[in-house]
């Protein structure tokens, strides 16, 4: 991570690698952005995510207005309609239109993924920096807490937590966010431990830099890359977790649709409505896939070491 914020110096062998010319005289971030821009798979993932996000947040009002759809309007005569005219993806067991519910579900699922990943990564980074920077007893205590909570089977923690605070989407965000920072803090702590001993940090300390200044200006920039990669990967895993919980009936409660709870009852109507099983799951898979691809792409772009180590990381 020493390369953060420093221009990449290219050696004299620039002529050997023709494409290296492209990267010349650029800073770390411009370089990374260019890397991502030329990485087709990552750009495709970004495009799909942007499309899904816009569709979920802007789509419902448009559909409601022009197609007269309502996510909660039930109709006995229109149950289990196959995809077709008027209901592009068919209707569910209460005669509710599926596409508008998928879009509203996307709002919740994506919203939870974005906010909860920001919360858990922020907590993880702050705790990781504090533990790594101060070391000593504070570090021991933090590591103990992390291993302790980490040793409880996650699914039980989530099960119990979701029954304690029977979740609205907002509460679910908090639960997922506050239970998700453990691994992240461990990664960040490891990184900070190695950065803390670098000469320039010691030099800054020697000239009397204050602790918060050291943390924010000298240590934090070194973990930004990890943070960005983790945000993407974490958002993907959070969508999986949230949909699993909602599927079990423990996450967001109906009638509010999410991709997970739209599948809850689907086991009962395999025979008459396979479209109700396929679409919500496809939405989850595509979204998670895109987040993972984005994470991998960002790792290639931001972490120069990953090329050699193939992305192998602790945790």
């Amino acid at each position: 991570m020493a390369t953060a914020n420093q221009p990449i110096e290219l050696g004299t062998d620039r002529s050997i690698f023709g494409e290296a010319r492209e990267y010349k005289e650029r800073g770390f971030w411009a370089n990374a952005a260019s890397h991502v821009w030329h990485d087709r798979l990552t750009m495709a993932a970004i495009t799909v995510l942007v499309f899904l996000t816009f569709a979920s947040f802007l789509g419902p009002p448009i559909l409601e207005r022009f197609m007269g759809l309502d996510p909660n309007a039930t109709s006995i005569t229109e149950r289990f309609l196959p995809p077709g005219e008027g209901h592009w993806l068919g209707t569910d067991y209460l005669g509710r239109d599926q596409i508008i519910r998928l879009l509203y579900g996307g709002r919740i699922s994506l919203g939870i993924a974005y906010t909860a990943s920001i919360i858990s990564v922020s907590i993880g980074v702050i705790i990781g920096i504090v533990a790594g920077y101060y070391g000593g007893i504070l570090d021991d205590i933090i590591i103990w807490v992390v291993t302790t909570i980490g040793s409880v089977p996650t699914i039980f923690l989530l099960l119990i937590a979701t029954t304690v605070w029977s979740p609205s989407p907002e509460v679910l965000v908090l639960i997922l966010g506050f239970l998700g920072w453990l691994g992240i803090s461990r990664l960040v702590r490891g990184e900070v431990l190695s950065v803390r001993e670098r000469d320039y940090v010691i030099a800054a300390q020697a000239v009397g830099a204050k602790t918060w200044h050291l943390m924010f200006y000298h240590i934090f920039p070194n973990v930004i890359s990890i943070v960005i990669i983790l945000l993407a990967l974490d958002a993907g895993s959070l969508i999986l977790t949230e949909s699993g919980l909602s599927f079990l009936g423990l996450g967001v409660q109906p009638p509010v649709p999410t991709w997970g709870n739209m599948l809850t009852k689907s086991q009962e109507y395999f025979a008459n409505a396979p479209h109700l099983v396929i679409w919500p799951g496809l939405a989850i898979t595509v979204t998670v896939l895109c987040f993972y691809l984005l994470g991998d792409g960002l790792r290639d772009a931001l972490d120069p070491r990953s090329e050699r180590h193939g992305g192998k990381r602790e945790g």
């Binding site: 993907g236 949909s243 086991q267």
Partner: peptide, 23 residues
């Protein structure tokens, strides 16, 4: 490998049941 990581297990289970058990 990437897709296998991204597919939610419960959905895969539902699809497998639908295809191989129900249909």
């Amino acid at each position: 490998a990437v897709v296998g990581n991204a597919v939610p297990g419960f959905w895969l289970a539902l699809i497998l049941v639908m295809v191989f058990a129900v249909n």
